[in-house]
Design a protein around this nucleic acid. Structure first.
Length: 422
RNA sequence: GCCCCCAUCGACUAGCGGCCCAGGUCGCAGCCCUUUCAAGGCUGUAGCGCGGGUUCGAAUCCCGCUGGGGGCACCA
């Protein structure tokens, strides 16, 4: 039997990162076994909001690197056939009308059980199960009926979903039984929490794929990080590409207890991926990101030139502006950081004015000579220069920054700083 | 209230009866390197929720407790 799974997002706007983690497990499981991965939208209407959300969901999934097979399907489209199936159950006396709604007969004795691919065997006393409404009095099927009905229709072999569906499972199992179908394998993966042990939400930080993208996380980071939430390959491996994940993922190694989303570790990992990029690829991604999220007018050539200066330093592409924004706009230095440093600033300006060629090594020589002449430690001498040039005590390498800024602008900033330093 | 699930360093986890006075990664602290910040290198920090069993031996198995989470809709 070949594997077929489905990802079933609700079209509620943005794609939640916790949901993506669940989809990822579906995706990895199917792809690792040559199976199929379907995308089924669990919509209850066809409003414009839904259409937009569906669009968003697909874009987010594609961006992060999760693809699917066949056309996107919609739960709403199977409402009719599901209702018809419910009527058939009534004809077979497996269900009955109750005040206009249809209820399914649940077994009265014994247990309903299944071997969960993640949690192991789970049993529920049938006495706990009530005859559940499967179709409303207005004719619309209920989720707990429509969902397993569709899984049957779609030939789903493995239902990999969130922990919160565990208690729905015995009901759905009985629906499937009534419909005469074979139950898929169920795998309930643990939830993802925020740092306070509560469901991951906005107040913990970014939660939608879109937010992560806009902050400058790489899709490969998110994919790798998400895979490690509730799953591990072994006791040592942390960094894995999508192909490696596909090859290594198994449901057996999915954990049973909930995981906490650790933003610090995500940042670390993104830094790892960012630094591992070839300089050219890094520059290219940086340009695309900045033009889309920061300022489309920043010259690509300047960004590319600045890329190597920040690659080792920033952990998210969105941090670029904070480090290298001084290359694109004036940055008035805080006067208090320049107090008493007029001599070194002036000496550096005088030294740089005639420098030829205006390059890193020469610039460094000028700065070091100026520091030595004034008997200043490099650290003490360079700080005011850094502040004058970049507007901050924290910046990319000073010499490279000056070279990139160019002689005219550098001298202008240094001389303005001399005036400020008094 | 009833039902189900879960429980290893602050976080993600390895561990599936002896290899563990518990290993890796993030974080944190210190040191080195150093023009700032990072990166990198080194060292360190910290954990099997509690109580009973079973066993020659338990983080690993069983029971109870406590603590989390989820569910009990003509919601999805």
């Amino acid at each position: 039997m070949s594997v077929r799974v489905r990802m079933a997002p609700s079209p509620t706007g943005f794609l939640h990162i916790g949901g993506v983690r669940t989809f990822l497990f579906n995706y990895l499981y199917a792809r690792g076994r040559g199976g199929e991965c379907l995308l089924r939208i669990e919509n209850t209407d066809t409003s414009r909001e839904v259409a937009e959300a569906v669009d968003q969901i697909q874009q987010s999934l594609k961006w992060i690197g999760i693809d699917w097979d066949g056309p996107v399907t919609f739960q709403l489209d199977s409402m009719e056939p599901a209702a018809a199936a419910a009527k058939r159950l009534v004809d077979e006396d497996k269900a009955y009308f109750d005040e206009g709604a249809i209820r399914i007969r649940m077994p009265r004795e014994g247990v309903t059980a299944w071997d969960d691919a993640v949690k192991g065997r789970i049993e529920v006393q049938n006495s706990e199960l009530e005859d559940m409404i499967i179709v409303r009095s207005d004719g619309r099927p209920i989720y707990n009926f429509a969902n397993p009905f569709e899984d049957l229709q779609d030939g789903i072999t493995h239902v990999i979903r969130g922990d919160d569906h565990v208690s729905n499972t015995p009901r759905q199992l009985n629906v499937i039984k009534a419909l005469g179908g074979t139950a898929p394998v169920y795998a309930h993966v643990p939830n993802v929490f925020g740092t306070d042990g509560k469901k991951l939400s906005k107040r913990h930080g970014a939660v939608s794929v879109d937010e992560f993208r806009k902050s400058g996380y790489l899709p490969e980071t998110l994919l790798n990080f998400l895979s490690l939430l509730g799953w591990s390959f072994d006791d040592k491996t942390t960094l894995m590409s999508r192909d490696e994940l596909v090859e290594r993922f198994t449901l057996e190694r999915v954990g049973v207890s909930p995981a906490t989303f650790d933003y610090d570790k995500l940042d670390w990992m993104n830094g790892m991926y960012l630094r591992a990029l070839e300089p050219a690829a890094y520059a290219q991604r940086l340009v695309a990101f900045l033009h889309a999220e920061e300022d489309p007018d920043w010259p690509a050539a300047t960004i590319e030139a600045a890329a190597p200066l920040v690659q080792e330093k920033i952990v998210k592409l969105g941090e670029f502006g904070g480090y290298a924004g001084f290359l694109f706009r004036p940055v008035p230095p805080p006067a208090e950081l320049l107090a008493g440093s007029a001599p070194i600033l002036a000496a550096v300006a005088d030294g740089l004015a005639p420098l030829e060629p205006f390059e890193r090594s020469g610039i460094e020589a000028v700065l070091r000579a100026a520091a030595e002449a004034l008997a200043l430690k490099p650290r003490d001498a360079f700080t005011p220069v850094r502040v004058a040039i970049t507007g901050s005590k924290v910046s990319p390498g000073l010499f490279e920054s000056i070279e990139l800024l160019g002689r005219d602008e550098s001298l202008a900033r240094l001389r303005a700083a001399v005036a400020l330093a008094g």
